[in-house]
């Protein structure tokens, strides 16, 4: 099929994989990327529970404003879209 927009997926070279945990389960990411991207690629979309009804929430604005992708690391709430993945990082669902 003719494509006017080329598929670049196979031409992207990513850094070495690193493994971190999300709610105790291992997730693979790449050194230097942010948690929101790594979790999304791993199909882990539900990053926090909303107040009141506990509804599942995940990355939304991807630019550090909406606070929907917040997760907990060492007891501190952080934005997944602004937190870098590192080997062995223990990430928990927030809220």
């Amino acid at each position: 099929m003719i494509r006017l927009v080329p598929n670049h997926a196979l031409k992207i070279v990513r850094s070495a994989p690193v493994v971190f945990t999300f709610d105790g389960q291992s997730v693979e990411g790449h050194a230097g990327e942010n948690l929101a991207g790594a979790l999304l690629r791993a199909g882990r979309l539900h990053l926090r529970n909303a107040p009141a009804n506990g509804g599942p929430r995940g990355a939304f604005c991807c630019m550090g404003l909406c606070q929907e992708c917040t997760v907990r690391i060492d007891g501190q709430v952080v934005e997944a879209c602004r937190t870098e993945v590192t080997q062995g990082l223990a990430v928990e669902r927030a809220g």
Binding site: P6, H8, V13, R14, S15, H30, A31, G32, E33, V85
Partner: peptide, 9 residues
């Protein structure tokens, strides 16, 4: 691009 992308078109 973030640091995880070593090369891309």
């Amino acid at each position: 691009k973030n640091a995880s992308i070593l090369s891309a078109p």
